[in-house]
Nucleic acid binder design. Structure first.
Lengths: 328, 328
DNA sequence: TTGAATAATGCATTCGATTTCAATTTAAAA
DNA sequence: TTTTAAATTGAAATCGAATGCATTATTCAA
């Protein structure tokens, strides 16, 4: 079923059919009506691919996601998809586990002529961003900054969130800290670690030890277990994300026989669903996922409409959730 | 950068460029080499959209997902995406929360000319399947059967998995059961409930009470709490999925002060990551997500290549995981 | 060396809609 | 009723690659 078929049945030209289906174009009510009737009869729907080819707009946005197992991403992905689809834009989903796959992935993205990209991934440096600029494809990064390169970014306010978190822990009497960080390759991990250490230092708490995991539950468990082999238990463990914090709590309780929070405070970051399960009831900083998804889509689509709009970094405040996993 | 540009630089025809980029077509090594050199120089990549238009193949598969918050889906989605991308097929992601949005979603799918559909959703009846057949778009359903309508399906073997689970519980001395089911609108919930009840009955255990939730953590908690208001604690709760089971355990421990598994056995179904966290260590039936994702993609792509292949239902065995959430 | 069979190549058409431009119709103003 | 401006309309070009067909170049056997 093509627009020509509809045109024949409706007794108008093919151009008229096309115009009838695009809003705001010059068609008389009578013609439009004839076209729509014929279209309904033939069950005609305009072919999106032909439209993409001629308009040079695909109506698709690539969403690139690493480690979907990080539980913050499913919800984020869902929200982003909803936001985009309310603007009549589709999501082309790419997963990216290894940095090595990036080159191939970028080729795919060019050939598919996506209108824009939302990157929920760490495997993206300023060179990659530059390549998108060459192709005039706007990109929005999530919780990620590229040093020395202005880029569209949506970030949770780590500074503000971690300040509140650290203040709360110190006020609760915690003095001997351990920071359980994500890997040093991760900007988010580095930022969270450095900021947490800085705020501790402002309370006069220095030389705080750091153990490194990979954001996973298992690494939270293992890192804490390894630490406890050679050290006394700290008062509090500040984890880079909720998943590690949950691993740490499980290890503390079941592996080390420590009571949380009586003998050990544990905090997370993100506000994943599981953090609020009563078995954990994590003290954590919640990312405003809805607003962040909306912000990412808003920023992106504004640049899609108008490519000359300069890059923007939008920082959204997180909210401290006072659970029962930490003395406070 | 179009194939014409490359053709000019390489000193060949546009057809030659096209042929150089498609495998198995008749081009001499010399021509191919000239084309590739020119393509590299111009940084040319074939335009996927133009290709779609002429070949009538989009190289995209629609994945429709409801309730991404069901923790089995993120992993599944990730596996499916990997499987598809290894076949050089992209994922167009759609979320579908309300049945009402389905009509609009289907329109989108037609216009985008996807090569196939993988449906991780309950909102799909045989009428919808029939419409896909009309459009010659193959569909694979996940853990879902459409009565009286042959359809491509990948299912975990509920029968076998639940038999093992029930046998284990009975062998462990559990006699007084409660079934915590997902909603009756859900086929999966119905199947799991009915099969569990049947197997209990084979052990002479009849008239087992059922409470209904909606697969969510909160509903697991709430249902169990509500049940305990008017009843004595059962020996064991068989839940329709892991998330409800986790909710049930949290309510049992923190709300009702019951020891799991000493005073209450709780089992789940699915094998989500959180089920294996030591805080829960759920006895559950694990879906072989990798194989199921692969099976779904295999079945789908076979029908994409050859639309006359008849529908197939593939049932994969789950594996019983004996955690410490149930006496056994 | 010749002829037949095969491989390589280019021309021109095609996919299905959008859009410019010129022609025509309609509406409004005089 | 005539003139002018505005709104509709259709013809034709366009987006960028794939491909059937006819032509030319190559290979191999005789």
């Amino acid at each position: 079923m093509t627009s020509y078929d509809v045109a024949r049945v409706a007794g108008v030209s093919q151009s008229a059919v096309s115009r009838a289906f695009r809003p705001g174009l010059s068609v008389s009510a009578k013609t439009k009506d004839k076209v729509m009737k014929a279209a309904k009869k033939l069950n005609y729907k305009p072919n999106a691919i032909a439209r993409m080819l001629i308009t040079q707009r695909s109506g698709m946005v690539a969403v690139i996601i690493s480690s979907i197992s990080n539980l913050i991403y499913p919800e984020l992905l869902s929200r982003i998809t909803d936001q985009l689809s309310s603007r009549d834009v589709r999501v082309l989903l790419f997963t990216l586990d290894e940095k090595e796959q990036l080159a191939e992935l970028l080729d795919q993205i060019w050939t598919f002529q996506v209108d824009g990209v939302i990157a929920l991934t760490a495997h993206f440096d300023h060179e990659d961003i530059a390549r998108f600029e060459e192709h005039n494809i706007p990109v929005v990064l999530y919780n990620r900054q590229v040093p020395d390169h202005p880029a569209n970014t949506v970030c949770v306010d780590h500074e503000q969130g971690l300040k509140q978190l650290v203040d709360l822990l110190v006020a609760g009497g915690n003095r001997r800290f351990l920071v359980l960080s994500g890997p040093t390759e991760s900007d988010v991990a580095n930022e969270r670690r450095i900021i947490a250490l800085r705020h501790l230092s402002r309370h006069g708490i220095d030389e705080v030890p750091v153990a490194y995991g990979d954001f996973s539950y298992q690494s939270g468990k293992d890192c804490f277990a390894r630490w406890m082999k050679d050290h006394d238990a700290p008062d509090a463990v500040i984890c880079s994300n909720d998943t590690m914090a949950i691993g740490c709590i499980d290890e503390a309780r079941d592996g080390q026989g420590l009571k949380v929070p009586e003998e050990l405070s544990v905090t997370g970051f993100d506000g994943i669903h599981a953090a609020f399960w009563t078995g954990y009831d994590l003290t954590t900083v919640r990312q405003p996922v809805n607003q962040m998804a909306k912000a990412a889509v808003d920023i992106l689509m504004e640049r899609v409409e108008n490519p000359t709009v300069p890059p923007e970094k939008r920082v959204l405040a997180g909210s401290l959730f006072k659970g029962s996993s930490a003395r406070s």
